[in-house]
């Protein structure tokens, strides 16, 4: 009787421990946050892995949306790491010029915030004029800048897997941010809005959401660890307070 009792408690303990721990592992795997953190400290900017990370940076910083009636917009924030990777791939930077180049980038970002904007339409190349739109950059601190510096925009025929053939105009744009760096380490979000007449579209890079996801993940993990610990303590308490064999035998004899 007593042996069965202890065995049952130990089995229960193991099952609960394994299930709660696997739940923790599962939670970590499923909710692994993608860190979308703009580089704001140019002292951290190096060339390690930049060549191989070039497309990963583009994927990370690109957002897509549709503008009115079948015009699509793809916006990529040119994070300083992406700017450097582009220059490295183009052969504009080598080890000798790296330090000087990073300083130049720091100077540029102190007063400019660059993006690449692609407008596309399946058939009509004439509807891809970015200058018809008022493009505004804002952030959570209330800074607001209207786009004036636009280059490029020659429509070209492109092809992609999901869209087949379409026309696309690529623009290199830069917001002149009044002599100060637009993004800093405390920026929670930045947003780019496109306005034309009654049409208004907005694209947001939410840095806070990433931090919240991370915090939520830490919270869930902590709760699960606490539940595991409580289960262990409960099991230990049950084992410690079990009736002793001698007492059980005595009761058994008395009953007989």
């Amino acid at each position: 009787m007593n042996v069965r009792y202890v065995s049952a408690v130990i089995v229960l303990f193991c099952v609960l421990l394994i299930s709660s721990n696997s739940a923790v592992v599962q939670a970590v795997d499923d909710n692994e946050p993608r860190t979308l953190t703009p580089l704001t400290n140019f002292g951290q900017l190096g060339v390690e892995d930049l060549e191989t990370n070039y497309y990963a940076l583009i994927v990370e910083w690109t957002q897509k949306s549709s503008l009115d009636s079948n015009v699509y917009v793809e916006v990529c924030y040119i994070d300083p790491r992406l700017a450097l990777a582009t220059d490295v791939l183009a052969g504009k930077v080598d080890e000798d010029t790296l330090e000087e180049h990073i300083q130049q980038l720091a100077d540029i970002y102190a007063s400019h915030t660059p993006f690449k904007i692609k407008l596309s339409h399946d058939t009509d190349a004439k509807r891809l004029d970015l200058r018809e739109w008022e493009v505004t950059l804002t952030n959570d601190k209330g800074d607001k800048y209207v786009l004036t510096d636009v280059t490029g925009g020659n429509p070209e025929l492109k092809a992609s897997y999901s869209r087949g053939n379409f026309y696309q105009a690529d623009y290199d744009v830069s917001f002149l941010t009044s002599g100060e760096q637009f993004l800093d380490s405390n920026t929670k979000w930045m947003s780019l809005s496109f306005s034309k007449g009654d049409n208004h579209y907005e694209i947001t890079w939410d840095f806070q959401a990433q931090a919240s996801a991370l915090e939520m993940n830490v919270f869930e993990t902590t709760i699960k660890i606490l539940i595991s610990l409580l289960t262990v303590l409960l099991c230990i308490a049950l084992i410690a307070t079990r009736p002793k064999v001698s007492i059980l035998n005595e009761r058994f004899r008395t009953n007989q």
Partner: peptide, 9 residues
């Protein structure tokens, strides 16, 4: 990895 990211981009 770089090629896969290019395919996505």
């Amino acid at each position: 990895e770089n090629y896969y990211n290019r395919m996505l981009a």
